[in-house]
Design a protein around this nucleic acid. Structure first.
Length: 1050
RNA sequence: GGGCCUUUAGCUCAGUUGGUUAGAGCGCGCCUCUGAUAAGGGCGAGGUCUCAGGUUCGAGCCCUGAAAGGCCCA
């Protein structure tokens, strides 16, 4: 006996039962333990931060991550599924700052870094319990007990080891990074903060002359909106492929001058003023031309003041020649590094000019703009001054205009490995593929050095110490090394600020005192280090590290392209010269109902709990898998998850419930009783099932989640709404013949196989089915479906022709129903005949083979092919463009016309007989093959017809008295079945029926009495007086009246 | 400003190497079936496949350009 299954499914209850089972039997750990010794399948968990609540987007990532470890486990792999937590960084600090009511860094310093960091450490796990609860509830199997934590000393120490490795290779260096900076607050602002403070403002817009050294009387015309940056000018950038011209113009004071600017901007700059173009050239020809510097306040230790090429130059504004001040622009800094230009720092941290800038020393730079302009004008270098209105960022806190300002920071020399980063990316399989050479590939190809330093508190400290006297620097790679250099045992030291800052080292060069540099490292370096640091490698677990690197599979959302995907790849490339992961699914973002990204800052995160409580984890997961391709962004709505339950889960569940109900009635068990003799319908279902196994397996092997799920939906639909609907009677009938055995065996095979195919994606219902269908009858079966073996398809069972044939039959059935509808003949009324027209001789054979099935489905006494010869059928020809067009190309229209001009009747008969027809086209005779033309039939009047393409169904709608009586009998059956149901009888209960009927109906009942009694399981059926106390049905139909009562027979 | 993605029915999405009548599910209206079903079947309303050019005998699909939206980066 199987456990009885109600047709009503309480999803939540079922899933919670499964969760309990997993916990009690420790299935998750078993799934790892039992596969020890099997081949390794390596999965890396991208660590989330638990200081925020998990949202739907986390369910998305976790749902996708879960599929492949489960699948691979079923294929015999050992899959270690270690979790991880990202615990450092600004998000954590900001939460603590909010709690403390802080608005700037000074307040943190005053409060004390030690206490502050202690609060951060606690805050990092604020929502850990909700994360654990959610992870558990959605059935994401990940080992959180052994999860790595980025703030642990061991983790940090390994990360230090990596940094030390880079240091030793000369890849870690100090440079400048241009950041948005508030001179009043004395601090750089994050992107988020900058975005808060944009507003419209007016700035000076000036054109200046930069006279060429080698061509007296000729100047570069350069445009800027920040005159205060001109004293820091070191170069002028021209677009390499931009067209430039030298123009000659008259000077007001007499004589002429020549100016160089982009051709596209001549009209904009000079307007009505007549100028003469005397020469033209590309930007690349300007490269290297030297000009006289506007100012010489600062010494230049490298060559400067010449034209360079830059791809950021546009000809939308200004002159097409861009002034370069590396300290005050990100592009400027980048070209300065590329071209090895000097960096002139003219401005102090408070936004005033340094003393070297003598005329304006101490003045706030923005206030100095007019003076600088005057100075240039006085020297004849100013061409024009205007006002320019644009949006510019201001400090959100104090409304001071932000400066783009170079701050010293630490870099990793990733750009040196640009080519290698690109090459190793070639080995990675990206899903979707366009990320590889698109978003990710472009990012790598334009790689710039990784700005590593952060001027914050809660994070991995940069392990570089600098001598206070001789400025020698050293990088420390372990606690042991630190202890040695400090001459004391520091093995218990907390590797966070401020404790590491308190450690002074002895300078090996001069014996001076060395202090740690103030920076922390980028948290992305933390998470990108996880392949190494999760093992405390190389100080511990060397074997494990080797075993679990690189990853076979990782999966995160697309916002990790420049985040975790990059940090893993970059660190792995620089450290091991190897790719870090072989396959990666890059998920699209979940958008809210209005199409915006769900994010904490927007406050539009939808809680997954409501969805889970109503519809369960399986349905939510399934929705996420099947809704759209994984890489595509998607809007999320709860209603769509509910639809999954209605359309898919319940369809499957009811098929399962049906099976269990009847198998229990019959005492059926797999492998017992007569050997099954499969009917064509069984063979079709098995063929479809094995095809499904093949396709789903293939899809999972290629990380195609849609391909691993949508076909299952189709199959379940066909299983329920065709196979089972067409097979019901085989289960009802008494006895246990080979046909019934075959029906049970087929349905059982389908359900148990589905349970396995669904295990990676719908782990709960898969388990439920497995426990009841497999475990309950086979003690030796796998304890859990997740410990079972993945199903193997049998190519012998697969039959492509059978699959095709059955879809034709389903189509014809559908047409038959349509014809009935048009004729207004309900299915309960038997009809004499249905005749079909199909497009080919082969399909006629299919029709003949499945005539009985169609007759039963359509409730007609006979099914046959429309006879071309014997009946008045009109034919039409439809030349098939696909076949003819591909064969004849541009001659197709003419051929089409010629085919349509043929006498349709004769040609159709020839083609239906499998013979070619000849057409004359442009003086040539062509042979048109039967498969190149579709023959469409139209039946004579008197039939009720429905057609689609080449297919047509025609019903004989005349009724004989026998047919009418049979129809009435079926009406009676239907009423009695309804009554059984409303009386809540068991499916197998026998009944006694007493009825009263109008004369015509009574005759019909008499004629079909055995049929009615058989259908309704009546042991007695008689006309007589009704006992009103019994369940009663009363109805009139087709001009007849019917009343009946029933009672359960003893 | 740059890169990537998206745009097909009211909603969520399919649409094979280009093939002439563009599909499914949900929702809506009508009809129907049912002793597994919260369901199933049929019919109907609902589409200038974002727009404009181009290639082709033929374009939802290929090419060019534009627009709108999203994400990432400046």
């Amino acid at each position: 006996m199987f456990k009885p299954v109600s047709a009503k499914l309480n999803v939540t209850q079922m899933e919670e039962g499964v969760l309990n089972f997993w916990t009690q039997e420790d299935i998750f750990h078993r799934s790892m333990r039992e596969r020890q010794g099997g081949p390794e399948y390596v999965f890396f968990e991208g660590p989330p931060t638990a200081n925020g609540k998990p949202g739907v987007h986390h369910v998305l990532a976790r749902a996708f991550k879960d599929i492949f470890p489960r699948y691979k486990t079923m294929r015999g792999y050992h899959v270690s599924r270690r979790g991880g937590w990202d615990t450092h960084g600004l998000p954590v600090e900001i939460e603590v700052e909010k709690k403390l009511g802080f608005t700037n860094k000074q307040q943190i310093e005053n409060y004390g870094i030690a206490q502050f960091n202690q609060l951060c450490r606690e805050s990092a796990f604020t929502y850990i319990q909700e994360w654990e609860r959610l992870t558990d509830r959605i059935g994401y199997w990940v080992d959180l007990e052994t999860a790595y934590v980025t703030y642990k000393n061991e983790y940090i120490e390994s990360t230090w080891w990596i940094l030390k490795n880079f240091w030793d290779k000369g890849l870690l260096y100090q440079g400048f990074k241009v950041v948005p900076y508030c001179p009043r607050c004395g601090t750089p602002l994050s992107d988020h903060e900058v975005a808060l403070g944009y507003r419209e403002t007016s700035d000076p817009s000036i054109f200046v002359r930069m006279p060429l050294v080698d061509q007296p009387g000729t100047s570069l015309l350069v445009w800027t909106t920040t005159p205060w940056t001109l004293p820091a000018n070191v170069a002028v950038a021209a677009g390499a492929d931009v067209e430039y011209v030298v123009v000659e113009r008259a000077l007001a004071e007499g004589g002429t001058e020549r100016l160089i600017l982009a051709e596209a901007l001549v009209a904009k700059v000079f307007g009505e003023e007549p100028v003469t173009v005397v020469e033209r050239m590309k930007g690349k020809q300007l490269k290297g031309k030297r000009y006289q510097p506007l100012f010489t306040f600062m010494p230049t230790e490298k060559p400067a003041h010449f034209v360079i090429n830059g791809d950021f130059v546009t000809t939308e504004d200004g002159s097409g020649l861009v002034h370069i001040a590396p300290a005050f622009g990100a592009d400027d800094m980048q070209v300065a590094m590329d071209a090895d230009l000097p960096i002139l720092m003219t401005v102090a941290g408070d936004g005033t000019f340094l003393s070297e800038v003598r005329p304006w020393a101490g003045k706030f730079v923005k206030d100095a703009d007019p003076f600088i302009t005057q100075d240039l004008e006085a020297r004849g270098l100013l061409f024009r001054v205007e006002t320019y209105t644009h949006t510019y960022p201001f400090c959100w806190r104090c409304t001071t205009p932000l400066l783009y300002y170079a701050l010293p920071t630490w870099y990793i020399r990733t750009s040196q490995f640009k080519d290698r980063l690109v090459e190793l990316n070639e080995r990675i399989n990206w899903y979707p593929g366009h990320i590889k050479n698109g978003r990710f590939g472009n990012w790598l190809a334009n790689n710039v050095d990784w700005a590593l330093g952060r001027n914050r508190y809660w994070g991995t400290p940069l392990p570089v110490w600098e001598c206070e006297s001789c400025h020698t620097q050293t990088c420390v790679g372990s606690l042991k090394e630190l202890s040695e250099l400090a001459h004391k045992d520091l093995s218990g030291l907390d590797l966070h600020r401020p404790h590491v800052d308190d450690v002074r080292l002895h300078c090996p060069d001069c014996g001076g005192s060395m202090q740690r540099v103030p920076e922390l490292i980028d948290v992305w370096f933390d998470s990108g280090s996880m392949p190494v640091s999760q093992w405390h490698y190389p100080y511990e677990h060397q074997e494990e590290f080797k075993k679990y690197f690189p990853a076979d599979f990782i999966c995160e959302a697309v916002d990790q392209t420049r985040g975790w995907f990059y940090s893993l790849h970059a660190i792995s490339t620089l450290l091991f010269d190897q790719e870090c992961y072989k396959n990666v699914i890059c998920l699209g973002l979940i958008l809210d109902k209005d199409g915006y990204k769900m994010s904490k800052s927007r406050g539009n995160i939808v809680s997954p709990w409501e969805v889970l409580e109503d519809n369960g984890a399986d349905a939510m997961r399934w929705y996420l898998y099947t809704a759209s391709p994984p890489g595509q962004e998607r809007r999320f709505s709860k209603d769509l998850v509910a639809e999954v339950v209605r359309n898919f889960t319940l369809t499957l569940w009811n098929t399962y419930s049906f099976f269990v109900t009847y198998a229990n009635l019959d005492g059926w068990k797999p492998g017992e009783g007569a050997a099954p003799v499969y009917s064509p319908l069984d063979r079709w279902l098995r063929s479809a099932l094995h095809t499904l196994v093949r396709d789903v397996t293939q899809a999972l092997e290629t990380y195609d989640v849609l391909g691993a799920t949508r076909p299952i939906e189709t199959f379940v639909d066909q299983l329920s709404n065709w196979y089972l609907r067409r097979s019901r009677r085989r289960f009802w009938k008494s006895g246990a013949d080979a046909d019934k055995q075959a029906a049970y065996a087929t349905l059982y095979e389908a359900l148990t196989t589905l349970s396995k195919l669904l295990a990676p994606t719908m782990p709960f219902i898969a388990e439920e089915l497995h426990q009841n269908l497999v475990r309950s009858v086979d003690e030796n079966a796998a304890l859990s479906v997740h410990l079972a073996q993945w199903p193997v398809f049998d190519a012998e069972v697969m039959d492509e022709k059978l699959n095709r044939d059955m879809s034709l039959v389903m189509r014809l059935a559908s047409l038959g129903h349509a014809a009935r509808n048009k004729a207004n003949r309900k299915v309960r009324q038997p009809l004499a005949e249905a005749a079909f027209s199909v497009g080919s001789a082969e399909e006629r054979g299919v029709l003949a083979g499945y005539a009985d099935l169609l007759a039963d489905e359509l409730n007609v006494k006979q099914v046959r092919a429309l006879d071309a010869a014997g009946e008045a059928v009109d034919y039409a020809l439809n030349p098939l463009p696909k076949q003819l067009g591909q064969k004849y190309g541009s001659r197709f229209p003419a051929i089409r016309k010629a085919v349509l001009a043929l006498p349709a009747e004769a040609a159709a008969k020839t083609l239906l007989a499998g013979q070619p027809v000849a057409v004359a086209v442009e003086g040539e005779t062509l042979e048109i093959l039967p498969e190149e033309v579709e023959v469409r039939a139209n039946a004579r009047s008197g039939f009720a017809v429905a057609s689609e393409g080449a297919y047509l169904a025609a019903l004989v709608t005349e009724l004989t008295p026998e047919l009418v009586q049979e129809g009435l009998a079926r009406e009676v059956v239907r009423r009695l079945q309804d009554l059984r149901k409303s009386a809540e009888l068991d499916i197998a209960d026998r009944i006694r029926v007493v009825f009263q009927a109008s004369a015509g109906l009574e005759a019909a009942v008499a004629a079909f009495r055995p049929y009615i009694m058989g259908e309704t399981l009546a042991v007695e059926m008689s006309a007589g007086t009704l006992d009103e106390g019994l369940p009663l049905v009363e109805d009139s139909f087709d001009g007849e009246t019917f009343r009946a009562t029933l009672q359960k027979a003893a």
